[in-house]
Amino acid sequence: MLRSLYNWTMALSARKSAAVWLAVIAFVESSVFLVPADVLFLPMALARPERAWRYALIATVFSVLGGIAGWGIGYFAFDALAEPILQFWGKLDTFNELKAGITYEAVVLMLVTSGFAHLPPIKVVTILSGVAHINLGLFVISAIVTRGARFFLLAWLLRRYGEDIRHFIEKRLGLIAMAVAAVLIAAYVTYKFLTH
């Protein structure tokens, strides 16, 4: 099922309405959809590099709006909407593990690592942020910074290096992003250790 979703999303990049589909996928990725917007963003930016910045802006804006929707689902409708969504995508156990040891600071850190590196999945963190009653203003600012950083970095890489960088991004960017996330987590743990 995941492979067919991936292939369907890739096929959208060739349509005239690709920018609209990018907005839709970026929105739903942050709250209910499993396939990341990068799958659509990468081929679109490669096909029309002069529009890469525009595509990055679309992806950022709609990813943030989708994140707000995920936050709202967690805040107002966890039992009715969020739990079935997480169950459907097989993320309920991940969510429950995160929720069990949650602190306000940990959710903010996850917003940063998830927004930039998809670690943990963005939809899990947006819903968790609502459940944990994370301040909506703080949530929106962190989403703008991290999602914007991700999409605009990808746009810059694609404009500068073109097709050569695509395979690197598809194969290794996730590892680099996870390494950055690990450094942020280590810095947080060190800070907590030194201040207690």
Rank of each mutant, 00 (worst) to 15 (best):
P120I: 00
I73K: 11
Q87M: 12
V108I: 15
P36N: 04
V125D: 09
G148Y: 01
H118Q: 13
Y75G: 02
L2E: 12
F152R: 04
E97G: 09
D93T: 06
L40R: 05
A177K: 02
A177V: 05
H118I: 05
S31V: 02
A187S: 12
D38L: 10
V107Q: 07
F33C: 07
V180E: 04
L153M: 14
A181M: 03
N96M: 11
V131K: 14
A59Q: 02
R147W: 02
A14G: 15
I25Q: 02
V131G: 07
W71S: 07
N7F: 12
A106F: 09
L34S: 14
V28C: 14
L194Q: 12
S13P: 08
R51L: 14
L92Q: 10
A187G: 10
H133F: 06
R166T: 03
F76Q: 11
G115S: 07
L86Q: 00
G115L: 09
A100I: 03
P84Y: 01
E163T: 06
I102C: 13
W71Y: 15
M1C: 09
Y191T: 03
F33H: 05
A14Q: 15
A149S: 15
A82V: 04
A155D: 02
G72H: 00
A182N: 06
A182H: 04
A100D: 06
G72R: 03
S142M: 15
Q87F: 13
L22A: 02
S13F: 05
I169R: 06
L158S: 00
M178S: 12
L92S: 11
L154A: 13
A59N: 01
W8P: 12
L173G: 06
Y75V: 00
G162L: 04
G66V: 07
T126D: 04
I165R: 15
I85V: 15
W21N: 13
T126I: 09
A143R: 15
D93R: 09
S31P: 08
P120C: 11
F76R: 12
I144V: 15
V64L: 10
R15Y: 07
I127E: 00
M10S: 12
A77V: 06
Y161T: 02
Y161H: 14
G137D: 04
L98V: 02
K99T: 05
G70Y: 02
Y55T: 10
A26G: 07
R15W: 05
W71A: 09
R147D: 02
A177P: 04
A69N: 06
V35F: 05
G137R: 01
V39W: 00
T190W: 08
K123P: 05
E105Q: 15
V131A: 11
G66D: 02
